[in-house]
Amino acid sequence: MKGQKLLTFASVGALMCGLSAAANAAEWKYAHEEYEGDVQDVFAYAFKEYVEENSDHTVTVYRFGELGESDDIMEQTQNGILQFVNQSPGFTGSLIPEAQIFFIPYLLPTDEETVIEFFDESKAINEMFPELYAEQGLELLSMYPEGEMVITLDEQVSSPEELEGKKIRTMTNPLLAETYRAFGATPTPLPWGEVYGGLQTGTIDGQENPIFWIESGELYEVSPHLLYTGHGWFTTAMMANQDFYEGLSDEDKELVQDATDAAYDHTIEHIQGLAEESLEKIKEDSDEVTVTRLDEEQIEAFRERAPQVEDEFLEMTGEKGEELLEQFKADLEAVTED
Score class of each variant (00 low, 15 high):
residue 215 E to K: 12
residue 249 S to F: 12
residue 199 L to N: 11
residue 194 E to P: 05
residue 235 T to Q: 10
residue 224 P to G: 04
residue 222 V to F: 07
residue 212 F to C: 02
residue 195 V to Q: 01
residue 243 D to T: 09
residue 263 A to R: 06
residue 190 L to V: 10
residue 206 G to R: 10
residue 271 I to H: 05
residue 186 T to W: 00
residue 272 Q to H: 12
residue 252 D to A: 06
residue 224 P to M: 00
residue 230 G to W: 15
residue 248 L to N: 08
residue 215 E to C: 08
residue 247 G to E: 05
residue 252 D to Y: 05
residue 180 Y to V: 14
residue 258 D to L: 12
residue 202 G to V: 04
residue 194 E to M: 05
residue 235 T to Y: 14
residue 267 T to W: 04
residue 218 E to Y: 14
residue 231 H to S: 09
residue 188 T to M: 10
residue 175 L to N: 02
residue 260 T to V: 11
residue 268 I to A: 04
residue 196 Y to W: 15
residue 245 Y to F: 10
residue 246 E to K: 15
residue 276 E to K: 11
residue 186 T to C: 00
residue 215 E to P: 07
residue 179 T to M: 14
residue 195 V to E: 03
residue 225 H to N: 15
residue 191 P to H: 00
residue 182 A to E: 09
residue 230 G to E: 10
residue 260 T to I: 09
residue 200 Q to A: 08
residue 189 P to R: 04
residue 266 H to E: 13
residue 204 I to H: 04
residue 268 I to L: 15
residue 210 P to A: 13
residue 203 T to F: 10
residue 248 L to I: 06
residue 270 H to M: 07
residue 256 V to Y: 13
residue 178 E to M: 13
residue 225 H to G: 05
residue 251 E to H: 02
residue 248 L to H: 04
residue 228 Y to S: 06
residue 265 D to W: 13
